[in-house]
């Protein structure tokens, strides 16, 4: 059974790059720029805090969707709250005032859907490469001071993108061989 160990980082990177670019370009009219990748294979490697919701006052909105099948994992899409709101406005055709009125629920729904599309696109690439899997339902994490920490035996890649001055982190956790 193929698993994270036999999937190359290149395949992951190409797929996530394509997925993020497709979703941002098609749905938001923005072309994100890939900035960097960090691979963290073991807990020991977690010494530096993961990008995204670092300690501080900025609120982050993090969408999560998993994939299950010949390859199992989770993807977190992390945006700062102002960018998440801007994304919601663009996606739903709302003004900033309307988005404020619609509240956090609208932002959560929109970021959940953007994450779903991104992970769906990423997953479709894996399926076509011979790793069939299915998506889980999306969920949202919100907060200003938290960290995402995988358990051991998990392979983790964090891809950082930039879009019109905002940082977008895509945190991919892949389950290792059982």
């Amino acid at each position: 059974m193929p698993a994270a160990a036999v999937i190359t980082e290149t395949l992951i990177r190409e797929n996530i790059n394509r997925a993020v670019s497709d979703v941002f370009k098609t749905m938001l009219g923005r072309i994100p720029t890939f900035v960097s990748v960090t691979e963290m294979s073991r807990r020991d490697d977690m010494a530096p805090p993961p990008p995204g919701p670092a300690s501080g006052m900025t609120t982050f909105v993090v969408g999560t969707v998993g994939f299950l099948g010949d390859i199992n994992g989770l993807i977190y899409l992390c945006l700062d709250e102002p960018f998440a709101r801007l994304t919601t406005c663009h996606l739903l055709g709302l003004s900033e005032a309307e988005a404020m009125e619609a509240g956090d629920e609208a932002v959560n729904d929109a970021i959940g859907e953007i994450t779903n599309m991104t992970v769906g696109s990423f997953k479709n690439g894996l399926c076509d490469a011979g790793y069939p899997c299915m998506l889980t339902i999306p969920s949202i994490l919100r907060g200003s001071n938290f960290s995402i920490e995988p358990i051991s035996s998990t392979t983790r890649y964090v891809y950082n993108f930039e879009s019109t001055g905002h940082k977008v982190a895509v945190d991919i956790l892949l389950k290792g061989n059982d």
Binding site: V119, G120, N124, P132
Partner: peptide
């Protein structure tokens, strides 16, 4: 749908 892929 987000479910693309040839098999789907």
């Amino acid at each position: 749908t987000a479910e693309g892929g040839r098999d789907n």
